[in-house]
Design a protein around this nucleic acid. Structure first.
Lengths: 200, 200, 200, 200
DNA sequence: TATGAATGAGCATTCATTCAT
DNA sequence: AATGAATGAATGCTCATTCAT
């Protein structure tokens, strides 16, 4: 299988680096090939075309990303803990791979709609993970039972995504992972003053 | 001032339509010129280059967008009402202008990072409006006083943005404005079950 | 009309020269543009694509070629004279334009089938001219009345074409036009010994 | 000798089929190798390069073609009969091998001039056969004694070639061999009305 | 102001050929 | 003898921008 051959991974890694360093539009196939240490033509033994490289980058990296999160969540006891872990792992993984963060948050968004449709497909399993947590929380009576699940999912994903994008655009100058707790609280409790409510 | 000359607005409108109809990458300067009813060269009497057209589109349209929201908020009594109004107006304006929604949520994101930085500049006044609401809510003791304001702003903006993008990608098949209340509740109260707390 | 603008003809001439000098496959668009003294992009203001340049070369040159022959034939008195004139003009014109001879006899034949179909279309009027002569000769009782016209036309065209091609491949080292009379006699009388018949 | 090894012939046959099915330009070496059931690299154990494959195709096929004609002619009594047989065999063989007809009349002509020079070399023995018939006819006083032999040969070959090419381009929809008699008469007697001559 | 013809830099992809196994 | 993965040179076309009119 082509995906197991060493050059496949070499090219994927080279693509991430090239895009992170030069930006999406300046990442010619020849540049990726050079960084991967293969000939231009070799690229086409492993990928159908340039778009296929980019989709594969996303598939490989996001596949790991999502698996990592899914497995970290597995041994958590309740939806609240799972949500906290999801946030933390989301931040942690991108904080640990600066190249990947730049590529996913900034560069790959410049792709045309066809490519972005494919990227959305790759993201679907992540959205399912989020949906499952919401449902579990509702069953555990930790979350409200009248939640509009797609909407909640969009809130969670939109929040995390925007936070990471801001962090990347601020050139990653602060600690992303440290925000986990605040973000978790915001999503769970919202802006309102709970204590006031409790004191009723 | 160039912005008051009739052709300036003609070109801006032509750009929005062209991008909405053809997509970002298929919107050549010549196509925009044709739709605006001017010669290609004329474009360059009003705009420095193609990027300048796109930034100006965003400035003009977002300027109105933000003003509209800011003025709607003005006569609301408290931060909670203001936030609800902001959400509603955000949704309402994009729901009322399909072209604009496609352009801002999908097409303009395909621009390179340099252009996106400039677009972020244009968005700043909107972010200030959000920040002000958060501060006001804190002062009114409606919101918690330990809120991390940039984080909250990112949550609010990221949530709204993601919701609108999903709606555009689902081809605007459902009523966006009807989601206002749910989104407002989510942001104010989060996912947690308040009633249990109240029943203490 | 684009065909009357001076650059159109410049490019056509440059294409003929370039192909004659470098051969069909080594005639890049950029080379043609350079010889025409225009930018590469200018080519595409006058021609749809590379194939369109080549078809146009053939159309222009063959158009003149055929017209020249047709008009020379006009004032000839009978089919025999017309045939002789056709042969002479066919040879004369190619003998007078070495570049054109190389291009039509050798280089343009390397084009793919799609292009050659179009080239055949351009040749059709020439074939009609030949057919008309054959019919006229039959009516004048100069030619036999049982002639298979398409076959005769193929004989005449095939003969002339093969003779010119041989001459081009022999690097045009002998006088092509001088062959007119021999060729004419061959086509009119064939190989057989007429005198024997006459002696009856 | 390489030509006797079984893979040599396999590759030749695969090349003819591939070219007939896909056209000259779409007949990559890898496609020929696949159809021949050998690895790409194996081709280069039997042929110097791609051009060598094509020349060899022509050599093999034309060798048989010419031999067939030469031997059929052998037992004919006079030049007239020999010429008729040559025409008939030329048509018959191509009519019997549609693949070969397409390859020789259309596809192989798309090769560059260098290859066509080599192909012409292969054809030389055929031209000699034609020359011999002409000379014999002259000696037998069947043909005129003032014939320009190269010219006559070009007429004969050009005529046959053009007729076959037309037949292939008309998708071989009529009976080529049935034309033998007409073509023979045309070449021997030309267009002219013999009876007029006789009346002298 | 306005025009629009002209410019020319930039790049994904194919495929004949090689060579380590 | 045979393989087939790897190579890398080579090119048509687009489109943002300019500038003579």
């Amino acid at each position: 299988m082509r995906k197991n051959r060493p050059k496949y991974k070499q090219i994927i890694e080279a693509a991430v680096e090239t895009i992170a360093d030069n930006g999406y539009h300046a990442s010619q196939v020849s540049k990726i090939a050079k960084k991967a240490g293969v000939a231009d033509g070799t690229i086409y033994l492993y990928f159908k075309n340039k778009e296929d490289i980019l989709v594969s980058v996303f598939e490989e990296k996001m596949g790991q990303f999502i698996e990592q999160i899914a497995s970290s969540i597995n041994d958590k006891q309740n939806a609240d803990e799972k949500l906290r872990t999801l946030i933390e792992m989301h931040f942690l993984q991108l904080a640990n791979d600066h190249h990947l963060a730049i590529v996913t948050q900034l560069e790959l968004r410049q792709s045309n709609s066809a490519l972005r449709m494919k990227i959305n497909e790759v993201l679907k399993p992540y959205l399912v993970v989020i949906d499952d947590i919401i449902e579990e929380g509702t069953e555990e009576k930790i979350f409200r039972d009248d939640l509009n699940i797609p909407l909640v999912r969009q809130m969670i994903f939109g929040t995390l995504d925007e936070i990471v994008t801001n962090w990347v655009m601020k050139e990653q100058r602060y600690d992303l992972v440290k925000q986990t707790s605040d973000v978790h609280t915001l999503i769970i409790n919202g802006l309102s003053v709970k204590e006031i409510v409790k004191e009723d």
